[in-house]
Design a protein around this nucleic acid. Sequence first.
DNA 1: GTCGTTGCAAAGCGTTTGCAGCCTA
DNA 2: TAGGCTGCAAACGCTTTGCAACGAC
Lengths: 123, 123
Amino acid sequence: MQRETRQRKAIRRALTEAGHPLSPKEIHEAAGALVEGLGIATVYRNVNALLEEGWLVAVELPGEAPRYERAGKEHHHHFHCRKCDRVYEVEGCPGNITAVTPAGFQLERHEFVLYGLCLSCAA
Amino acid sequence: MQRETRQRKAIRRALTEAGHPLSPKEIHEAAGALVEGLGIATVYRNVNALLEEGWLVAVELPGEAPRYERAGKEHHHHFHCRKCDRVYEVEGCPGNITAVTPAGFQLERHEFVLYGLCLSCAA
DNA sequence: GTCGTTGCAAAGCGTTTGCAGCCTA
DNA sequence: TAGGCTGCAAACGCTTTGCAACGAC
């Protein structure tokens, strides 16, 4: 990654200003409003480049298309509201993870996703 | 779902005997060994039919194609080996889940996925 | 001016669908 | 024998890749 093109700037800006994880399509729409004729291939190429650079992290929810958010956040998990489809960050980590790891298995990382209704949808 | 064809029998058997969640491709390979010339489209059609029937449940891992396992198992989670790409079942649940749920949120279900190396790949 | 980057279009890849013929009940 | 089911191939949607032109440094 060496050149800061108009396209890359627009993609960075779209992700920074969104405040929540964006899908490639959403990035294309948001950044496309800033740069005329932005190609979807450019979005994918930049997303992958930004992932490699460590500027982005993928938020992969089961059964959902991957979304992307800015890197640098603390270890957290996600709560997925089934009604409004929004994703919330959840602090902390439940209990002893190594305890449930089968003997001989090498645990490297884990994902943890909560499903249900968020505060406003539960009301 | 009305007819128990050779193909459907083979798919049911493959899933029953596997003992761990299978991807459509894995189902195709396993059931294809039992029925000559089994088509991949038939696998997809039957998987969807068996899901609707409630005989199967989808195991959806973040960023992964869905896999399928027999319904009716006890509550469990999964371990995904990054080397052999297989998915193992993990017994138990790591501690206090409600404790990390934000106040006011209605928790309905949760997914928990471990990543790393399985017993044979870690050796 | 170099060469990393872009837009377009085509290629991949996994999944779904249309269709004519097959085979289970 | 009827019509649900199958294999094949084409269609699909999303992502990646090849290529010639563009433009950041």
